[in-house]
Design a protein around this nucleic acid. Structure first.
Lengths: 225, 225
DNA sequence: GACAAGAATGACCCGCGGGTCATTCTACCG
DNA sequence: CGGTAGAATGACCCGCGGGTCATTCTTGTC
């Protein structure tokens, strides 16, 4: 971790307007946004600081008034995206007798679509590409995103297994199986997107059919072994 | 694509021993091997030509007697790995009445284990990381590896669906779903491998349980709707 | 042993891009 | 208006690493 953000002017007792820190904050923000876009597009190493600055409408030197170095800019970009998820996408719970399949079907695809649209999947891809070179950052991501998600998956996997909705306990044993199709199609899009894009949410829905059986006519509950 | 490999001395009518081209070929081979290892470990951009040469026990300049530039070395490395798969891993066919699950279970895990052991999954990861920067190479990989694999998947997905062994036709519609857990765990290993490695074959077996139901007692054949 | 021919070397070149800093610009205050 | 403090600039520095080439080393032949 870095955190060294080069405190831009004491936000302490300012005699006059509070306009200054605002200007500064806006500039910072512009840089972070520009950097995010470029990092997503080209990756960390391949992005030049001069380009970041230019994209933010600033000169290269200015960047270094706000960020100690390239890596700390990267850390800030990441932190921004991770916390910006911020409002903390609430997942809600399934209604007492709601089939797990129905619950997942109404809950997950919108999230996937949002992740897709907001480019948050791009971050995932970015981490996959540059993670090895920045173990600290990769760890942060692992703990902030991956572990919680898998924990959540495990909870609902157990529920589905308890209710006999799925064919084995593999989901709760290896929660990565549950997220694999969605994640992989997201990666696919960042890789072959232009050529043949996949609709991540659609893939997920198809996957649900496979796991739980296709949409039931009435409410649900086909065979339970 | 490059291919410009800088023909090392006319292999044509040599007046004397055929030893020369051998020496040359050996050196080439050493370079390719060293490059492969380093590319897998650090990625293309982050690998220095001087390191490749050193790893092959040669001086940097020598590398350029055998390869036009870094990129053409990369192309050669890739070509080597792709064709070396060479003997053409035969997949065999399921016996007439063999359940698809059983067939996959005896066929796929060994392949996965070999891919794992031989580091071929590393290539996959390498492509994921550097693909965007080298569209031509990514295309080659797409056509040489991905398309054929997905085609194969589709064939067996159809079989399983025809026989009513799986719960939906999502597999043949979106074959990526079938390979997702294995691929993603392979990528995971290249990313968090040291921390918490996954047994790719085990993940796949768990996934089979989920798709087809757990191992049947006798031979198989649960419900067909 | 002399000599040719290819293989290998490593000092060198040079552009790219991260990072610095003396200077200029802007905005506000008395 | 003069003063000042922080924001911004962009010319500059410099190491890194891809790529070159005059030179040396090896190997095989007569």
């Amino acid at each position: 971790m870095a955190e060294d953000a080069r405190e831009p002017a004491a936000p302490a007792a300012d005699g006059g307007t509070a306009a200054r820190p605002d200007r500064t904050a806006a500039t910072r923000q512009a840089l972070v946004q520009a950097a995010l876009a470029l990092f997503l597009e080209r990756g960390f190493k391949a992005t030049r600081m001069s380009d970041v600055a230019a994209a933010a409408g600033l000169a290269k030197g200015t960047t270094y008034l706000h960020f100690k170095d390239k890596e700390s800019l990267f850390a800030d970009v990441l932190r921004g995206v991770l916390t910006e998820t911020g409002g903390r996408r609430r997942i809600g719970r399934p209604r007492p007798d709601e089939p797990t399949r129905a619950f997942l079907l109404r809950t997950v695809p919108p999230i996937l679509r949002e992740l897709q649209a907001s480019g948050r999947f791009g971050i995932l891809y970015l981490m996959a590409r540059e993670g090895p070179q920045f173990p600290a950052v990769a760890d942060t991501y692992h703990e902030t995103v991956i572990v919680p998600v898998l924990r959540l998956v495990r909870i609902y996997a157990r529920r589905a297994e308890r209710r006999g909705e799925v064919r084995s306990d593999a989901l709760s044993r290896l929660p990565i199986i549950f997220v694999a199709p969605a994640i992989l199609s997201a990666l696919w899009n960042n890789l072959f997107g232009r050529a043949s894009p996949l609709d991540v949410a659609a893939v997920f829905e198809g996957y649900l059919d496979l796991l739980f059986g296709p949409a039931p006519a009435g409410s649900d509950g086909p065979q339970q072994t």
